[in-house]
């Protein structure tokens, strides 16, 4: 990933934080990405390209906020692991839930159900 400011060294210790200048650069980048997102929304792209593009841009914003503003880039590994465990669990189980619905055709009322335990 591109680092907006190469000249600042942060990697030595987690108590050191980036300079305000670096934060402003990140914010400018976030603003630019948002602008691009909204712009491609108005292009007549095919759906798959639009969705892929939007997801990639959202991921970039997500990563920059999490890694820079929330300091995951500089902080202890345990925080990253806690957060990632939540995200991965969520992606795992809900992609299964949604694919079950969409594989089953979705939409219509569900059959009458009487299972459980």
């Amino acid at each position: 990933m591109t680092e907006p400011v190469q000249h600042v060294e942060y990697h030595d210790h987690h108590t050191e934080h980036p300079t305000p200048r670096a934060y402003v650069w990140v914010a400018i980048l976030l603003a630019l990405v948002t602008a691009i997102e909204v712009a491609i929304y108005y292009f007549n792209l095919p759906d798959w390209a639009l969705i892929a593009g939007l997801l990639i841009f959202a991921l970039i914003k997500f990563l920059f906020v999490a890694r820079w503003f929330m300091h995951l880039k500089f902080d202890e590994r345990v925080f990253r692991m806690l957060f990632l465990t939540g995200i991965i669990t969520a992606l795992f189980v809900f992609s299964i839930v949604l694919s079950i619905f969409f594989l089953a055709g979705d939409g219509g009322p569900a059959p009458l159900v009487n299972g459980g335990g």
Partner: peptide
Amino acid sequence: GWGVWAHHMFSVGLGPVA
């Protein structure tokens, strides 16, 4: 434990794959 929940729902008709 996160990958077994739908065994409570076998009679729902989730389809053979699920």
